[in-house]
Amino acid sequence: MTIPHETPAEQRLDHAPLRSAVIVNPNRVEGLDELRAGIREQLAEAGWPEPAWLETTAEDPGTGQAEQAVADGADVVFVAGGDGTVRACIDGLAGTEAALAILPGGTGNLLATNLGIPTNTIEGVQLALDRGRRLVDLGEVEGQTFAVMAGMGLDAAMVDDAPTKLKAVLGSVAYVYSALKHLNDAEMKVEIQVDDYPVLRRRARTVLVGNVGRLQGGVNLLPDAEPDNGQMDVAVLAPKNLGHWIQTAFGVLRPGRNKVPNMEVLRGSRITITSDRPQPRQLDGDVIEPSATLEVTVRPDTLWVCVYQPDTSEDLTEGAPAAD
Rank of each mutant, 00 (worst) to 15 (best):
D161K: 08
A157E: 11
D160A: 15
G268E: 05
D155V: 08
A9D: 02
R19K: 15
N120T: 15
L215V: 04
L170C: 13
G230Y: 03
N25D: 11
P280G: 08
V307A: 07
L93V: 07
D130W: 01
L283F: 03
E50G: 05
N25S: 09
V194W: 06
L32K: 02
P26A: 14
T2V: 06
L138T: 12
L221W: 03
Q193R: 12
R12L: 03
G230S: 06
S291L: 11
I3L: 08
A238K: 06
N241V: 03
P198T: 11
L115T: 10
Q144K: 11
I90Y: 02
G95V: 08
Q144W: 01
F78Y: 13
P118W: 04
I288E: 14
D155F: 04
L110M: 14
G81H: 12
I122N: 11
H244P: 02
T7V: 04
I102Y: 05
A74D: 03
D185W: 02
M188K: 07
L266V: 04
Y308D: 10
G64K: 03
T164C: 07
P49Q: 11
M188Y: 06
E59I: 03
Q216R: 11
A16D: 04
S313E: 15
L54S: 06
Q279N: 09
K181A: 09
M158P: 02
D276N: 14
D14K: 02
L115H: 07
R299Y: 01
E226T: 15
M232I: 09
G116M: 09
D160E: 15
T56H: 12
R19G: 12
L154D: 04
S172Q: 13
V194K: 08
V219I: 15
V207Q: 10
A156N: 05
S291V: 10
V287K: 07
S313R: 15
A99H: 00
R133L: 06
E191F: 01
E264F: 01
L111E: 10
P300V: 13
T107E: 13
P51K: 10
S275V: 04
A157R: 11
W48L: 01
V76C: 06
S275G: 10
V173C: 03
W53L: 15
K240G: 10
G108W: 03
T96G: 04
L43W: 00
E140N: 10
P290D: 14
L135S: 10
V252L: 14
Q282V: 02
A292W: 05
L242P: 00
V307M: 06
L127I: 05
V305T: 13
R281I: 12
M263N: 04
N114H: 13
P8I: 09
L208W: 01
V219C: 15
G95R: 07
E187K: 06
G256D: 08
P290K: 14
A74N: 05
V86G: 06
M188I: 09
P17E: 12
K240E: 14
G73A: 06
V24A: 14
E191A: 13
E187Q: 11
D286K: 04
G106I: 04
Q126R: 10
N220W: 01
N184S: 09
P17M: 11
N258W: 03
D83N: 13
D91Y: 08
H5P: 01
T57A: 00
S313V: 14
